[in-house]
Amino acid sequence: MARLTINGKSLELKVDPSTPLLWAIREQAGLTGTKYGCGVAMCGACTVHMDGKAVRSCVLPVASAEGKQITTIEGLATGATLHKVQKAWVDYEVPQCGYCQSGMIMAVAALLKDKPKPTDADIDAGITNICRCGTFQQVREAIHAAAKA
């Protein structure tokens, strides 16, 4: 059993406490926007926010997330209003296959919280997600656009 707060909702999940947070989010909480890409915190597809910080949920035991505020891609928008990063992603048509973009968007949203006007060097240091389609050129443009929004 684990008690998690995901996107503002308190949930009691039937899950072994050693289960990675990613799988509890997907398989117990039923939120499939957060993706599995590697399981070893290399690719960032599983990025969510824990108390506002970007974390790679595939290596984080669910027990360590108890009592924390977890935000997934499904909880990023405010009602029908997209988060400024999501809006920039639409405006700049960032996603290709889109599979890694939930994690990419969550990583960027956390970066902008820390550094509201990131330089290219900040982006290079802060965003280390893998995208095999190779959307980085649009990702960079969209981050700068979101920072201005």
């Binding site: 499904e74 999501q86 992603w89 996603p95």
Partner: peptide, 11 residues
């Protein structure tokens, strides 16, 4: 595009 930025796209 839209469903790919909200997590709604079902893969």
């Amino acid at each position: 595009t839209m469903t790919k930025v909200t997590g709604a796209q079902v893969y």
